[in-house]
């Protein structure tokens, strides 16, 4: 079986300094794969290169057998890839409803889009209560929910989440992961970038550990969770 997303020898450099030194990883259809690592390990650089926000310095990214290396971000949405960016990136001066509609920008089926907006509201009732509120006035957790909901409106086959738990209270983090599990259970393939290794590995099928721009460990999420090296480095011993 060929992987849905196949990354080979990916390199990212910032002005000659290599942030990602040729990593290989893949995501199979239906999986929830997580990429964990400390701050500055290169997680976000990897995701930025995958999503066309920066051009990789080397390597290839293949999605469903198609080379998408360096394809600009706006063209990826149509292929079924959505990225929920680090720091959430909701449009602060657009209201919740408009933010959700922007997620469906590349689609034309208005009636179906509105049905899916309603589905998001059912899945995340908090957003429904705030539909006409400017996104900038939402709490961090609500913004994260909005960002995920917005990404789902692109009808992605592959959803990439960049640090969804960042800066959120533990209770809110649980809610976010509840939503992520729900999305995964409905068949969307997920690539999850997380600093919270415990939570990420508990929810993932497989995981990769990124250290200083290289993948040092990989395997079944349950196995990684029990691995003494992971425990020591990321799970607080």
């Amino acid at each position: 079986m060929t992987a849905m997303l196949d990354v080979k020898k990916l390199q990212v450099a910032y002005g000659g300094i290599k942030a990602i030194k040729g990593i290989d990883f893949h995501v199979n259809e239906g999986e929830l794969v997580t990429l964990i690592g400390a701050n500055g390990a290169g997680k976000s650089s990897t995701l930025r290169a995958l999503s066309g926000l920066i051009k990789p310095a080397g390597g290839t990214v293949t999605y469903k057998g198609r080379d998408i290396t360096g394809v600009p971000s706006h063209a990826l949405v149509g292929l079924g890839i959505a990225l929920c960016p680090e720091g959430r990136g909701v449009f602060a001066r657009l209201n919740v409803h408009e933010n959700l509609l922007m997620g469906a920008y590349s689609r034309d089926d208005k009636a179906q889009i509105l049905r899916e907006v309603d589905e998001i509201y059912t899945m995340i009732p908090r957003l429904k209560e705030r539909t006409l509120q400017m996104a900038g006035t939402l709490s961090g957790g609500e913004q994260q929910m909005l960002a995920i909901g917005r990404a789902m409106l692109a009808q992605p086959k592959l959803l990439m989440l960049d640090e969804p738990s960042m800066g959120l209270a533990p209770l809110m983090v649980d809610k976010i992961f509840e939503i992520i599990r729900l999305i995964a259970s409905r068949g969307t393939t997920i690539l999850l970038i997380e600093q919270n290794a415990q939570l990420a590995l508990e929810n993932a099928t497989r995981g990769y550990v990124l250290e200083s721009g290289e993948i040092t460990l990989q395997g079944d999420a349950k196995v990684l969770l029990a691995d003494p090296r992971v425990k020591e480095a990321y799970l607080g011993g």
Partner: peptide
């Protein structure tokens, strides 16, 4: 950047 992620050209 985020607008681009939404598929906005």
């Amino acid at each position: 950047k985020v607008a681009g992620l939404m598929g906005i050209d």
